[in-house]
Design a protein around this nucleic acid. Structure first.
Length: 477
DNA sequence: ATGTGC
């Protein structure tokens, strides 16, 4: 991107000035000069378009891992005031509603895994349903699914998938408020009846990792992680249900925008006022999809525990945290000296509440919310903590991953899946997948350097680095 | 992201 159009506010903050004639408010990109300059021009165009939407409060923002998405960039954050005509947008949440990462900490050491790595990868690959259209071991009725959509991970725990103690460490304690299954189409529900407890495809994965380096000893202790310790990260979302809701509401919100005379800078930014029938219906459906994703990750965490217990009967496998990456949440934030209720869209961005936030588990409250930056296949990941400055910087938001640097098609031309899997194997990283095409699309080289993203996230004041993770086993969707 | 794509 041509950064000469941007003002350098500080070394990690780049501003596209408001333009009254174009009806555009400020757009802001966070990241080092190198990361922002390497982003596609489309990121600037898209975040500039978001800055034209009604009821925006503060700048439209892009996180350091941002890249081109549908309407909003992935890595986009924007807050809207419902009392000022603020909108809600399906493109601002993303198709995979509440896609996110469940992070489990174990009391195992890297050496324990190395002794059984191949067999453990067999067990995970056998028991974790993964891949396009891959069904799970559950078949629900519509009535049962409605309970999933209302109660989220709580439903899963009640059904015997996991432990009550997991719920404290899930965003919203495992159940998103405002879910309304009656806003979800029969088609969206039917697509999900056989897909609870499945990983999906694309960038989704389950990874067994070890803690390579601790940078913040106090936060690491609060999070219960230490160097050499093994953790498991499960990255997945709301599967067919969330995708169908996104598809359904793009149409419904576009009609609402036309009816209400909202000028859309891009038709992919279909949206409706938060206080409108279509806006409220999308909010109800989106939260239902969030509960689907939270239940999905809860079931997968339970399956993972089962596989680990087979090899390590006494191992502790506890939920460190579960963060969503694709959400729109009503939150109170201080703007101009007063608290305001805002609907914060985070698309490919993590909520990152800072120290002292009363909704955080007591164990983490003093250090801030755990934030997981998921790396690309076979590279590193990071655990961070929400920082004091995150609220003022980005309504308490941070990066969610390495972020793509190259399209899937470009990656397919450049890499071969089998070769990548073999190369990573030589580095001691076991990749298990049913799709070599998917593996090529997910080539590490098609992503930004996660080290640079994590560093920039900290420098930009969005979250501070706690511990880096290195992969041992990766089950790819 | 996706019973991947009209």
């Amino acid at each position: 991107m041509d950064i000469s159009r941007l003002a350098e506010v500080d070394s990690c903050t780049w501003s596209l000035a408001a333009d009254a004639r174009e009806g555009r408010r400020e757009a802001r990109l966070y990241g080092t000069r190198e990361l922002v300059a390497a982003m596609d021009d489309k990121v600037l165009e898209q975040i500039g378009n978001v800055a034209k939407l009604p009821g925006l409060v503060g700048p439209a923002m892009a996180m350091p891992d941002a890249h081109w998405g549908y309407g909003f960039p992935i890595g986009g954050v924007a807050a809207f005031d419902p009392e000022q005509g603020g909108i809600i947008s399906a493109g601002g949440v993303g198709f995979d509603i509440s896609c996110g990462i469940r992070c489990l900490r174990t009391d195992l050491a890297k050496g324990d895994i190395l002794q059984v790595a191949r067999k453990l990868s067999d067990g995970l690959f056998r028991d974790i349903p993964a891949g396009v259209g891959e069904g799970g071991n559950l078949r629900l009725t519509v009535q049962e699914l409605d309970r999933v959509l209302e109660h989220g991970a709580r439903w899963a725990v009640q059904e015997g998938f996991g432990e009550e103690a997991d719920l404290e460490f899930i965003e919203d304690h495992g159940c998103a408020k405002g879910a309304d299954p009656t806003c979800v189409s029969p088609l969206a529900k039917s697509r999900q009846l056989g897909e609870m407890g499945t990983l999906g495809s694309g960038n989704h994965y389950l990874e067994v990792q070890w803690v390579d380096r601790v940078l913040d000893a106090e936060a690491a202790e609060a999070f219960g992680v230490a160097e050499g310790q093994v953790v498991v990260s499960i990255h997945c979302g709301s599967r067919g249900l969330g995708h169908q809701i996104g598809t359904d509401f793009l149409v419904s919100l576009a009609k609402a925008a036309t009816r209400l005379g909202i000028a859309l800078p891009d038709r992919e930014l279909a949206c409706a006022p938060i206080r409108s029938p279509e806006g409220e219906q999308y909010f109800g459906a989106m939260n239902a999809a969030t509960n689907c994703a939270l239940a999905n990750r809860q079931i997968l965490a339970h399956i993972t525990r089962g596989v680990f217990r087979h090899f390590f009967p006494k191992a502790r496998v506890e939920t460190l945290f579960d963060v969503s990456h694709n959400t729109c949440k009503p939150e109170e934030h201080e703007v101009g000296g007063r608290k305001r209720l805002l609907y914060v869209h985070r698309k490919g961005a993590t909520r990152a509440f800072g120290p002292g936030n009363p909704t955080l588990p007591a164990r983490y409250r003093a250090v801030g919310q755990p934030v997981v930056i998921g790396g690309s296949m076979g590279t590193g990941s990071w655990i961070l903590a929400g920082s004091e400055t995150s609220e003022a910087r980005a309504y308490s938001s941070a990066s969610h991953g390495a972020g793509r640097a190259m399209s899937r098609n470009a990656a397919l031309k450049r890499w071969q899946g089998r070769q990548l899997v073999d190369q990573l194997g030589e580095q001691g990283i076991i990749i298990r997948t049913r799709s070599m095409r998917g593996a090529a699309e997910e080539a590490p080289g098609a992503y930004k350097d996660v080290e640079l993203v994590a560093e920039a996230t900290e420098k930009a004041g969005l979250a501070r680095r706690v511990a880096s993770l290195r992969p041992l086993i990766c089950v790819k969707g």
